[in-house]
Design a protein around this nucleic acid. Structure first.
Length: 391
DNA sequence: TCTGGGGTCCTAGGACCC
DNA sequence: TCTGGGGTCCTAGGACCC
């Protein structure tokens, strides 16, 4: 049987900021903008003690924790740290799947089969990640990816949880239905209406093929039913799949009505999208314009290009056409453009990517990463890029 | 001072064809 | 007097995740 490990970096963005600025250590911090539409993306454990949590508007977080230190995102730096994390994991097993910037699935079947004390082996890995990268993590070990993910969520921070198939009824079934990975805040209340308040309640009804439950969940019913019975994938996806879409959106400084008011924002969204598509070396045929109204409802309209493109003017003109045709009378708080039906453009000369992978793969030490990041922050090329993005 | 931004996948309904 | 029906492709919206 396969042994799958899920590794989840604890409060990753917050931990990364503490590494850059050790004076933040032990303090309540949150990553996010302080402005009108800022929300918390990650809070340190010190801040969580005050009730600060991700997804919370920053003004509410500040109300809950007046000493809260708000720190802006540094995504390029997080990606560099994340790469070091994955390199370190790959030293233990080459079968690593990047589940997100701060999560990995690892097939540990082979490395652990040779170990007398598998638990000590995993603890060692956990401590060396902490020591060498300065990043704490929680680990979940189980026969499937879903169970490993559920396991790593059980103990945080620095948890290590093992779930065997026979442990499912005692460990997983008592958990509230809200903790089911794959069931979110829309479905959970509907399941509760059916009398399902724990994962065990779900398993019981699912195994009886309860018609109301099947109707409610659609195709996902079969996947979820398999998961709670110890089934589901244990396959590690080594290659990141080709992206299916690339999108850029921005919340406006104030609600806007009419094309003239969103012109400059839409222009910078198109420019940023073009840059990103070019960096990924993708062109697309589908251009979707997205807007959010003042009631926070999302609307979208799609256009199709005759020739695939990632040209900023082409993307902008298509977005403008859609905006004027469908949204000119709407009061909007967000505009975005997504490029879809992606294709690889004809081979061009190899373009240097913004972050040279080879370069930071060599740098194992966090300190070097930080120095490199800070150096790049001051570099003129990056300044120019951020200027472009602002226009 | 109400509520981000990046994605993936699924579904319902319409257009179109035979 | 009643609404064929199956298949495919496309679009908009929505649920979910980090």
């Amino acid at each position: 049987m396969a042994i799958i490990m899920h590794v989840d970096l604890n409060a990753f963005f917050a931990a990364a900021e503490v590494l850059r600025d050790p004076s933040l250590k032990g303090k309540p911090i949150a990553i996010g903008h302080a402005g009108r539409s800022g929300i918390v993306s990650t809070a340190s454990y010190e801040a969580r003690a005050y009730g600060v949590h991700s997804g919370q508007p920053t003004f509410q977080a500040l109300k809950a924790c007046p000493n809260l230190i708000l720190v802006d995102h540094h995504f390029d730096y997080y990606h560099m740290l994340s790469n070091s994390f994955f390199s370190k994991i790959k030293e233990v097993s080459p079968l690593v799947e990047m589940a997100s910037i701060d999560e990995a699935f690892v097939d540990m079947t082979k490395p652990l089969s040779q170990e007398k004390d598998p638990i000590a082996f995993c603890r060692n890995l956990q401590f060396s990640l902490k020591e060498e990268l300065g990043l704490g993590c929680s680990m979940g070990i189980a026969p499937t990816k879903w169970l490993a993910k559920m396991a790593s969520d059980l103990k945080k921070p620095m948890g290590l949880t093992i779930i065997r198939k026979k442990d499912i009824p005692s460990v997983i079934y008592p958990l509230p239905i809200e903790s089911f990975w794959g069931i979110g805040k829309k479905s959970a209340p509907r399941l509760r209406e059916l009398g399902i308040s724990t994962i065990g309640d779900f398993a019981k009804k699912a195994n009886a093929d309860d018609p109301a439950l099947m109707e409610l969940m659609g195709k996902f019913f079969y996947t979820a039913k398999s998961w709670v019975n110890g089934g589901g994938s244990n396959q590690i996806e080594l290659e990141a799949p080709d992206p299916k879409s690339i999108g850029v959106s921005t919340t406006l400084g104030h609600d806007c009505q009419g094309f003239a008011e969103v012109y400059s924002s839409l222009r910078s969204v198109a420019d940023e999208l073009s840059l990103r598509a070019k960096r990924e070396r993708k062109e697309g045929y589908g251009v979707t314009l997205q807007v959010k109204d003042t009631q926070f409802r999302l609307h979208s309209k799609r256009g199709t290009l005759v020739h695939s493109s990632n040209d900023a003017d082409t993307l902008f003109e298509e977005a403008r056409r859609l905006y004027e045709a469908y949204f000119n009378d709407m009061e909007v708080r967000l505009v975005g453009i997504t490029l879809e039906k992606l294709v690889d453009p004809k081979k061009e000369e190899v373009q240097m990517s913004l972050w040279n992978y080879q370069e930071y793969e060599k740098m194992d030490k966090t300190k070097l990463l930080i120095e490199e990041f800070n150096r790049r922050l001051d570099s003129p090329s990056l300044m120019r890029l951020s200027e472009v993005a602002k226009k």
